[in-house]
Design a protein around this nucleic acid. Structure first.
Length: 642
RNA sequence: GCCGUUGUAGCUCAGUGGUAGAGCACUUCCUUGGUAAGGAAGAGGUCGUGAGUUCAAUUCUCAUCAACGGCUCCA
C-alpha cells in the first residue's frame, strides 16, 4: 500500500502501483473522465503512471493551468500524427504548449504547407481523435533511442538526445505516431473534441537565424466545442480593441506608402492626445526637478562612435547622409545629445543630480518584419530623460523614478504589467557587457532593493541587461497578446566614462557621474497604441480628442448650440456641434461610436431653461443640467485627469 | 532580414480570362424629427505597382512594394 495525501489534507491508502486515474476512479467516474494528468510530489505525471511510493497528489483537469498545457501538448502530438500521414518522411523538432494552444516545428524536407493543408490536417486530427488512442509512455535506453532515430535519419531528435542520459529518456506513442518526449500526456486522444489550426509560420531551428528555417504550425484545441466558441469570440473581441483598427476609426494616426513603412502620421485627434501626454510629462517632471532640453534630430558619426552605439546598432540605424566628407546619422537615441549638454559647462557636486528631459524624436531602422502598427515603428517620440548623479545619490534618484512610474500607472489605471529586472551575465563581461564587475553587482542590488521596498512584483532575467548597465522594463501585452516593453528605466555606468563626463566632488577631485536613463511613458507611439487598447478607444475626458459633442434636436436650436459651444470653449473644453441634417437618434449613435465622452442634447426644453441634456458615453441619458453646473463638473473631471 | 498569407471605392467585403459590384461613409434634395441607423437621388475604383503569357488580364505567371501571422532583433 502507498499513502497518498490530497490537497485538502486528507491522506488515504491505495494499493502499490495505483495510478492517479485509478485513484480518481475510486472517487468518482465523473472525475475520472475529466482527469488530464496529475501533480505527483510537485511534478506533472501521466494519470496512468503507477505510483510506487507515498506521495502527494493533485488531480489535474481542464481547470488547472498544468492540465490545459498537458492537453495542448498532447494535441501537438496528435497534430504531428496527422502531419506524418499527410507528409510522410517529415521530421519533427519540438512541439510545446504555449499560452493559448500549441505548436509543432517540423522539417518538411523541401515541401511546403499551405492553408488548405491545415484544413486537411484538422480533418485528419478529428478522425484520429475519435479513435481515442491512448498516449503510451515507454522508458527507453539512450542506445535504443539513438538507434531508432538513426534508422529514421532524424537529425533533429538525435540532436535532442545528445543532451539526455539513460534513465531520463521516454518515448510516447499514440496510434501510429511515436515521439521522443518527456511528457506527460493526457490519457487518450478522444478527450480532444475541438481543434483549430490557426497559423502557419516559419521558425528558425533553435531560434537562431543562422540555422535552417523550420515550418511551424500553431493550433488550439479544447475538450468541447463550447470552449472553442468562447475562445474564438474572445479573439473577435480582442480584434475590436486592436489599436490599429481603433486608430483608424477614431482618426488617431495613419500610414502612407509614400511616407514609408513604420513612419506614422499623427492626425489631428492623435496630436491632441500627444499634446495632453506631453503636458502631463512636463508638469510631472517640473515637480520632480527636471530641466527640459531640445536637441537636433541628427548628429555626426563620431558622436555614436563615442557612445559605442554605432558598432552595435549600425544596421538598425538609418544609413548616414554624407556632407562635405562628414557622415551624419539620424539619432536613434537621445542620450549622447544630453551627455553633450551635461558636458557643455563644468559641473560640481552641487549641480547634481542633474535631470535633463526631452520628448525626443528618434529614428530606428527596425527590421521590416518587426514593424507592428504603432507598437513598433521607425520614428518615435520618447519620454526621455537622463539623470546624472553621484553614487550616493543613485538609490534615491532611482527610487524617485520608480515612484514616478507608479504615479503615472495610477493615472492611467495600468494594472496588468510585469516589471522585469534585467541583469548581466558575468561570463560576458567585456563582451556584451561593459567590464565593471563591481558596479554591476552594486547597482543591480541597489535596483533590486528599490523594487522590494516599493513592494512591486518583479521578475529577474539574467543576461538581458543593456551593455552599459542593468535595467527595469515594464512589460505589457497588446490586445492580440503580443508582449511589449512599455517603459524602461536603466542604469548606465559606461557612457559617463566614454564621454569623459565629470564633476568636481567635495574633495575637489574629478568624478564620473552615474547616469539613469528613464522613459516612464515610453514613446508616444507605443504608449498611445497601448492606451487605445487599454481604454478600448474610450479615452478619459482629459485625453479625449473631442470631449463634448453638442447635438441639436433640429436646426431651430442651432443658436443655442453655438452659444453652448462658445461657453465650453471658453472653459477650455474641446467641443463640436453635430450640425448634420439628421435625427437625434442618428447623431447619438454616431457620437457613441466615435466614443466621445459627453453629449449635450439641445432642444426646446433646454433653450427655455438655458440648460443641456447630458448623455455620458455608454451610460445613456443623465438628465438636464444647467450649463454652468455641468461645465464645472467637466472641468474638474478633466483637471483631475479622472 | 527569414517563412507563410493577403492587397478590389474613404471603411468592411462580394466577384469575374471579355475593361467591376454591395453595405456604411460622402454630396444634393425631401424631411425639422427628443436619446443608438428617416427617405430619395448622385458621385466615387485604369481591381497595390511593373513586366510577361494571351486576340483579350483585375482574374494566369514572374518580379516588386506594402500590410498581416510568426521567427530573429529591440540601445
Amino acid at each position: 500500500m502507498v499513502k497518498i495525501s490530497f490537497p485538502d489534507g486528507a491522506i488515504r491508502e491505495y494499493p502499490d502501483g495505483s495510478s492517479a486515474m485509478d485513484i480518481a476512479r475510486s472517487i468518482s467516474e465523473g472525475l475520472a473522465r475529466k482527469v488530464l494528468a496529475a501533480m505527483v510530489n510537485g511534478s506533472v505525471w501521466d494519470a496512468s503512471r503507477p505510483i510506487h511510493a507515498d506521495a502527494s497528489l493533485r488531480l489535474l483537469t481542464w481547470d488547472h493551468a498544468e492540465g490545459r498545457s498537458t492537453f495542448w501538448h498532447s494535441s501537438a502530438h496528435l497534430m504531428a500524427e496527422a502531419v506524418e500521414s499527410l507528409f510522410p518522411g517529415v521530421k519533427f523538432w519540438v512541439g510545446p504548449a504555449v499560452d493559448k494552444g500549441f505548436y509543432y516545428d517540423m522539417d518538411l524536407g523541401g515541401r511546403s504547407m499551405t492553408e488548405e493543408d491545415l484544413r486537411k490536417l484538422e480533418t485528419k486530427m478529428n478522425e484520429l481523435a475519435k479513435q481515442g488512442n491512448a498516449y503510451v509512455r515507454r522508458e527507453i535506453s539512450k542506445d535504443d533511442a539513438v538507434n531508432y532515430f538513426s534508422d529514421k535519419g532524424d537529425e533533429y531528435k538525435l540532436d535532442l538526445l545528445q543532451g539526455l542520459n539513460d534513465g531520463e529518456i521516454t518515448f510516447y506513442t499514440q496510434g501510429a505516431f511515436t515521439d521522443l518526449c518527456k511528457g506527460p500526456h493526457i490519457p487518450h486522444t478522444g478527450l480532444i473534441k475541438a481543434i483549430k489550426l490557426t497559423s502557419l509560420a516559419g521558425a528558425y531551428w533553435k531560434g537562431d537565424e543562422r540555422n535552417k528555417m523550420l515550418t511551424r504550425v500553431y493550433g488550439v484545441s479544447f475538450p468541447n466545442q463550447k470552449e472553442m466558441d468562447e475562445h474564438l469570440l474572445m479573439l473577435e473581441e480582442a480584434k475590436k480593441r486592436d489599436h490599429r483598427k481603433l486608430g483608424k476609426e477614431l482618426g488617431i494616426f495613419t500610414f502612407d506608402d509614400d511616407i514609408g513603412p513604420g513612419l506614422p502620421l499623427w492626425m489631428p485627434n492623435g496630436t491632441i492626445i500627444i499634446d495632453e501626454l506631453e503636458k502631463l510629462a512636463r508638469e510631472t517632471e517640473e515637480d520632480a526637478g527636471y530641466k527640459r532640453v531640445v536637441t537636433p534630430h541628427i548628429a555626426k558619426e563620431n558622436l555614436y562612435l563615442t557612445s559605442g552605439h554605432l558598432p552595435y546598432y549600425a544596421e538598425s540605424m538609418y544609413p548616414p547622409m554624407e556632407l562635405e566628407g562628414v557622415k551624419y546619422y539620424l539619432k536613434a537615441m537621445n542620450c549622447p545629445h544630453h551627455h553633450k549638454i551635461f558636458d557643455a559647462e563644468p559641473k560640481s557636486y552641487k549641480d547634481l543630480p542633474l535631470r535633463l528631459a526631452e520628448y525626443g524624436t528618434c529614428y530606428r531602422y527596425e527590421q521590416s518584419g518587426e514593424l507592428f502598427g504603432l507598437m513598433r515603428v521607425r520614428c518615435l517620440h520618447m519620454n526621455d530623460a537622463h539623470i546624472y548623479c553621484s553614487r550616493e545619490q543613485f538609490a534615491q534618484e532611482f527610487r524617485a523614478v520608480n515612484e514616478m512610474y507608479l504615479k503615472y500607472f495610477k493615472i492611467f489605471g495600468i494594472e496588468k504589467y510585469v516589471m522585469r529586472l534585467s541583469l548581466h551575465e558575468p561570463s560576458k563581461l567585456g563582451q556584451k557587457y561593459i567590464n565593471e564587475p563591481e558596479l554591476w553587482l552594486e547597482t543591480e542590488s541597489m535596483v533590486r532593493e528599490v523594487l522590494k521596498e516599493s513592494d512591486i512584483p518583479f521578475v529577474e532575467v539574467p543576461d538581458e541587461g543593456a551593455f552599459y548597465g542593468p535595467k527595469i522594463d515594464v512589460q505589457i501585452w497588446s490586445a492580440i497578446g503580443r508582449e511589449f516593453t512599455l517603459a524602461t528605466n536603466q542604469v548606465d555606468f559606461a557612457q559617463g566614462r566614454r564621454f569623459k563626463l565629470s564633476y568636481t566632488n567635495r574633495d575637489n577631485q574629478p568624478e564620473v557621474p552615474l547616469i539613469i536613463h528613464r522613459a516612464p511613458l515610453g514613446t508616444h507611439e507605443r504608449f498611445i497604441g497601448f492606451l487605445l487598447e487599454h481604454y478600448a478607444g474610450k479615452f478619459p475626458l482629459w485625453l479625449s480628442p473631442v470631449q463634448v459633442k453638442i447635438l441639436p434636436i433640429s436646426d431651430r436650436f442651432m443658436e443655442h448650440a453655438q452659444h453652448t459651444l462658445a461657453r465650453l470653449k471658453k472653459a477650455g473644453l474641446r467641443a463640436e456641434i453635430d450640425d448634420r441634417n439628421e435625427k437625434i437618434g442618428k447623431k447619438i449613435r454616431d457620437t457613441e461610436l466615435m466614443k466621445v465622452p459627453y453629449m449635450f442634447v439641445i432642444g426646446e426644453k433646454e433653450v427655455e431653461a438655458d440648460a443641456v441634456s447630458v448623455r455620458k458615453q455608454g451610460k445613456g441619458d443623465a438628465g438636464m443640467f444647467p450649463l454652468s453646473e455641468i461645465i464645472l463638473t467637466l472641468t474638474s473631471e478633466k483637471e483631475n485627469r479622472q
